[in-house]
Simulated assay, not measured.
Amino acid sequence: MAVRQRVVAGDEVTHVVLDREWKVIAPIEDYLEYLRQEQYSPHTVRSYAGGLASWWTLLEQRGQDWRHVGVDDLARFARRLRDRGSDPTVLALRPSKPAATSTVGSAVTAVLGFYRYHAIVGGVPAARQFYVHVTGGTMQSRSQYASFLGHIGGGQDRRVIGRRRGPSTPAPLLSPQQIAVIKDDAARFEDGNWLGDLRFRLLWSLLEETGVRIAEALLMRHRDWQPGTGTTAFIEVEPREDLRRRLRVKNQHFRRIYVGDELDDLYGEYLFLLAEHGFQFDDDDPIFINFYRGQIGRPLRAETVYDWIEGFKRRHPLLPAEWTPHWFRHFHATALLLAGIPPHVVQRRLGHQDINTLMRTYAHVTDDAEMRAAADWKMLIQRWGAAA
């Protein structure tokens, strides 16, 4: 059975895949190293390593050479994942709960990328069966295999086994009232003083008002926050990663986000708190650090944030038990779209590479707004008459 193994070397944290003899599987390692060199996210490398470990396990159990596989093998692999690892040739008397569509899709994508890589660097022909080349809407035979840049010369490669998406559901989000409860639980201003953990109040307020990801917030340094001194304050999301804390700015793209005076003032209060506690910091130090546990003064870890959330959920059992920091991001995007902010502006603020990602995730928001506008039939008729 092949397994994914975490490897730590100095400040580098990555994953490799070992075979049943506990040896690194060279073809998989070559592909994973290519992903590392191309600066793929460590989370992507980890996910792909897990998918390829499952694929190699299937090959080992069947005694099959990895270079001689076909579409049927890939389909069998996808079915195996959906059935939680059971052999698709054996009828299960008590079938397990099916795996998530995204989990299956990610593993299949890893296998397809692995073979496409080896088709180019090593001439392994298996990838030719997994893709068809499309030119002008017409699919050519499976033997017509193009390179990674084949679409530039006209047409593109499409997977024979597609990645099916599950039913579309609205992105989960917190209400303004629920967010207020979370922030007040962290710290509350009473009798001229902040009571509680102002650090977490700043963190939740930052996620609420900017829509940054939790990793982006925890990687932020003091020089990234430009206070408003006669101008509008803003924060900058810098391409940055910390493999020790397993944090990385997604897509490694820079962006600037303007913030309001209230959030900027809260950051100022936090700086005073740091000074009162005797913390020495400069512009290149992380904003969020350990106060009460772990190595005091060291950068705050995501695990500490989730520990706080677990404690909060015990104190407030009526709020959604499944909420995570990412729900603040969904709230931010939804609020902007409902306020009529153009989607391309929301895309830039959230840092999405493709506007389709935004529109697919929050389609229900824009659709609902358009449907509500269409409900005002009298206004629409008047507008139509005026245009005539």
Score class of each variant (00 low, 15 high):
338 L>W: 00
46 R>Y: 15
130 F>V: 12
365 V>Y: 00
190 E>D: 02
319 L>Q: 01
366 T>A: 00
200 F>L: 06
46 R>T: 14
128 R>P: 02
327 W>N: 05
28 I>T: 12
18 L>S: 01
385 G>P: 04
99 A>G: 11
232 T>F: 05
68 H>Y: 10
172 P>F: 01
334 T>N: 08
301 R>M: 11
79 R>N: 09
142 R>E: 15
243 L>Y: 08
333 A>Y: 04
216 E>L: 04
32 L>G: 03
286 P>M: 15
205 S>W: 14
365 V>T: 01
224 D>H: 06
23 K>Y: 01
47 S>R: 12
45 V>M: 08
242 D>L: 12
369 A>Y: 07
49 A>C: 14
214 I>E: 05
52 L>G: 08
177 Q>R: 10
201 R>K: 03
302 A>I: 15
9 A>D: 11
172 P>I: 01
160 V>N: 01
185 D>V: 00
72 D>Y: 08
369 A>V: 06
180 A>Y: 05
179 I>G: 06
167 P>A: 13
157 D>H: 15
203 L>W: 02
121 V>N: 02
162 G>V: 08
62 R>A: 09
133 H>M: 12
36 R>D: 13
383 R>H: 05
233 A>W: 05
316 H>G: 03
306 Y>Q: 07
62 R>K: 09
9 A>M: 15
302 A>P: 13
